[in-house]
């Protein structure tokens, strides 16, 4: 109960600090694996999860005013990634793994091939002077693709 009140308080007494600083920006990348044993980072082919479209027409933007579930889910996953960077929690890691697996099974079932497991990592992108830098800050546990959380 106390936890819910702690989550509710910023809503009823907001700080309204939108975009006060442009913080390092998280990216979610995943790799499909053939086993539960993790080789080194470089042995994987890391793919960006749900890359944004190259271009959106004004009509598509208008449509997204009413129907935008994928984008809103991606923004939720950004929140989960930010929570992991601040303080890793099982909930945030589970949410990201669950949604990557669901996306793979729904839209990319052919690309999973013989792979049996999945891992994701978080990159932080930030500007250092005039150059962009990225740094890997988190690796998830290795999750079997066959144990998708149905809840």
């Amino acid at each position: 109960m106390f936890h819910i009140l702690k989550l509710l308080l910023p809503a009823v007494i907001p700080s309204w600090r939108f975009f006060d600083v442009i913080a390092p920006s998280p990216r979610i990348q995943f790799a499909l694996l053939n086993s539960a044993n993790a080789p080194s980072d470089n042995d994987y082919e890391w793919c960006e999860f749900r890359p944004r479209p190259a271009h959106l027409s004004f009509l598509q933007m208008l449509g997204r005013m009413f129907w935008n579930p994928e984008r809103n889910e991606s923004l939720f996953l950004v929140s989960c990634a930010e929570r992991i960077v601040q303080q890793p929690t099982q909930h945030s890691e589970d949410e990201i793994l669950k949604r990557i697996i669901a996306e793979l099974k729904t839209n990319h079932s052919d690309s999973t091939g013989e792979t049996t497991h999945l891992q994701f990592r978080l990159l932080l992108v930030q500007r250092q002077d005039s150059r962009l830098q990225q740094q890997v800050v988190f690796h998830s546990r290795i999750q079997s693709l066959s144990t998708q959380d149905k809840t």
Partner: peptide
Amino acid sequence: FQFSVYPASES
């Protein structure tokens, strides 16, 4: 626009 997660498309 350059590196945050917010722009809705790459363009």
